[in-house]
Design a protein around this nucleic acid. Sequence first.
DNA 1: CTGAAAGCGCTTACAG
DNA 2: CTGAAAGCGCTTACAG
Lengths: 381, 381
Amino acid sequence: MSPPLVPRLIRHEHVHILTQRFSTGPTVNKKSPARRAPTESDVAKLAGVSQSAVSRSFTPGASVAESTRKKILQAAQTLGYHPNLMARSLATRRSNIFALAISDLENPFYAQVVKELSERLRETGRHILLFVSNPDRSADPDLERVLSYQVDALILTATTASIELALQCQKAGIPIVQINRESRVPGISTIRGENQKAGHRIADFMAAAGHKRIGFIGGTRDSGTSRVRQEAFVSRLAELGISDVQVRYGDYTFEGAAVATRELLSQDRPVDALFCASDYMAFAALDVAKREFSKHIPDDLSIVGYDDVPEAAHAVYDLTTYSQPAAAMVEEAIKVIDLMIENPGRRAQRREVRGELIVRGTAKVPTAGVVTKHGKKIWHP
Amino acid sequence: MSPPLVPRLIRHEHVHILTQRFSTGPTVNKKSPARRAPTESDVAKLAGVSQSAVSRSFTPGASVAESTRKKILQAAQTLGYHPNLMARSLATRRSNIFALAISDLENPFYAQVVKELSERLRETGRHILLFVSNPDRSADPDLERVLSYQVDALILTATTASIELALQCQKAGIPIVQINRESRVPGISTIRGENQKAGHRIADFMAAAGHKRIGFIGGTRDSGTSRVRQEAFVSRLAELGISDVQVRYGDYTFEGAAVATRELLSQDRPVDALFCASDYMAFAALDVAKREFSKHIPDDLSIVGYDDVPEAAHAVYDLTTYSQPAAAMVEEAIKVIDLMIENPGRRAQRREVRGELIVRGTAKVPTAGVVTKHGKKIWHP
DNA sequence: CTGAAAGCGCTTACAG
DNA sequence: CTGAAAGCGCTTACAG
């Protein structure tokens, strides 16, 4: 009755279950006692020292004789000992874990934020506890309990913190910062792109290119980030004599932006230039404009995005956009948090990371003002 | 000396620092004592009960009189008490935290995996501790210490576990499963798409469409997932009389796939059909083919991807691809983990989630075999 | 149903 | 430099 050499295939709903028939080591038939992990005491016993000596050997600045520390690390090695970080957190009241609340992961900008944050954090031995929230509810009940995890800080991006949560964090002395989201709540630090300057510049850019009939697709109606961009854009256009600006909201989603674009292009006098509050929405706009309205870009319609995600540079999009460097924003967020941790009582910070209007192929370009910087064409009149 | 009402703007490197001047509550000038969070003992004192009674009130099945529990919850409410999950983990030896090791977040497929996993997990009160690893080193030193966090399980996707890590996990009784990555290491469960069937079907599809000069762009050379797809594809083509298949590797990156495509299209007899081991790489191929080689798709060149990420359906790509549902794969992964947790000693599982060859616009379609299923055109001869 | 007590695996004054 | 001991904030038998 030797087991078959090829995997057996069992059909089960829409999933195949292939049972594996190779040795899985000593735990194969023993109902795996799940041998509990070795602790400091185990190491201490083996090394013939006290448990506190073991602890010190794993604490960077602690005082242990080099000889005993060596002995201890040796013993730890043979036992396969790893400190229990939960226990350490309990004792030190510091977890080295940051909570990251995020939504909108399909938007590559936020995927980038996750990646950058993770990389920067790992350099200092910290990690991310992830809360992917539903963008439509502002007060995520799951996130409200984030403090239970004794995180050292809370970072939000593509989502915002409720007032209650902000208060809780403040009480507990936990820094809280929002990346790319505004906040009127005191105590929440914010890291933003140049929303206002971008709105002005894109308005100048479109006007200089000769556009008259202009549209704006915002994120959600209550997004401060989107609103700042919109207000700067619309008011500058008004100054330039263009007062009829069509505004729609795409809720930061692909589908929402597609619907908004459809509306803007179905009118009697469709728009001939469109500023979208995110590259991701601009991709949707491009999609609809080309496929459903057979628009030639940028001859029939100029589209400008915001973020400069990596995809924007790809040929299929080749999107003109205002940049907002995720890496720099993440770096600022960490700086702010470290500042607040070292210096509690410090007031909330607000930082702005610079960007540029990157000139690519989806928008008509004014005759003057294009310069090249770091190999990229930017509009800087 | 009243503070200015508008934010002061300080220029500092390439970042603006805007100081905020509003009340931040009682902690403004007090160097914030960071009042420590209330504990069960605090609640017990206020409610006039024992600390263990408080604990029981927060433990689902525990025995407490409804009246005292009410009193306790009341007291907890007024103190703003939240259980300390680190302490709970230490006591229960269960953290309700899953480690997720991932790389390649710019690939939308993996962004989707993160999102789906987070959603499924939150339903059962569990969370994700994130390890974004560098794809080029297989044994991530950071990840090797994952056991220190007392996670309940380890999920890997777009990356694989080292043998050492797998052994550690096995010893500790922690289930470990890889999504979309093969493993020859015993003890690692795997969830895969229909890699082999897909390879066969795409070969059939391309041959039936009349292609003769065919290319394949794989992920990394050592990716089992990619290799299975490749071998099935190449061997079936050989059966069909097409033995000269050009193989390149794009390392699952956009740039890598672009380079590979350039090579395949620069030859004397460039390929007229191309199967890419991921949609993300197929996007790069499309990009290069259109922009650099002015190819008409699919007249000059057919491109087929793998995954069916949401972007594949967008008009700019409109990619023909073999689907691999992230949601279903995540669900299987969780099922497997729960099975292993409830039933330690159980051998590693291997599950395969079904997909379809989704017919869109980037590949020539054979005259027969296209059917419509759930509103999607699929090729199912 | 309820409380006192031990224990989860660490850190960290405090003596020596 | 080193060890004994208290404490971090919980859970969970064990008595009552």
